[in-house]
């Protein structure tokens, strides 16, 4: 969790310092892509906590999900159907799902530590 937060903070700093902008017509696609990326990050944190983190799966998911989400938004724009709702729904859902699992893992770890302390004292 902490390293992800630190990473985001560093990224925000870099983003504000760099003169990096893009066409404002793409903001919708980028925002959906950001959501997909955040989902991947949460998934990565969870996998790390569970001890089955795979860098290939993480990176491919990170990039692939972002591209797919942005592409879905783009196609929806062309067709006149807001298809990006699908991306928002899926990734939003999974985001909360992952976060719930992370919370459980962290709290259960704390509990086990407490139990150990309890037994020793």
């Amino acid at each position: 969790m902490v390293y992800a937060l630190i990473g985001v903070l560093i990224g925000v700093l870099i983003g504000f310092l760099l003169p990096f902008t893009y066409n404002s017509a793409y903001t919708l696609y980028v925002s959906v892509a950001i959501l997909a990326c955040m989902d991947s990050i949460f998934g990565g944190i969870r996998a790390n906590l569970e001890g089955k983190f795979d860098a290939t799966i993480f990176v491919s998911g990170f990039i692939g999900n972002a591209i797919l989400a942005a592409f879905l938004a783009y196609i929806g724009d062309r067709l006149g159907v807001p298809l990006y709702y699908a991306a928002i729904f899926t990734f939003g859902n999974r985001l909360f799902d992952n976060f719930a699992k992370i919370r459980r893992i962290i709290t259960s770890k704390r509990k086990t530590i407490k139990d150990k302390n309890g037994t020793t004292i």
Binding site: Y3, A4, L5, I6, G7, V8, L9, I10, G11, V12, L13, I14, G15, F16, L18, F20, T21, Y22, V30, A33, I34, C37, M38, S40, I41, G44, I45, N48, F53, A55, F58, V59, F62
Partner: peptide, 15 residues
């Protein structure tokens, strides 16, 4: 790895 990619998200977010 997660930290680096979080930084990427941060850059996108900031932009």
């Amino acid at each position: 790895t997660i930290g680096i990619f979080s930084a990427l998200v941060g850059i996108l977010f900031a932009s």
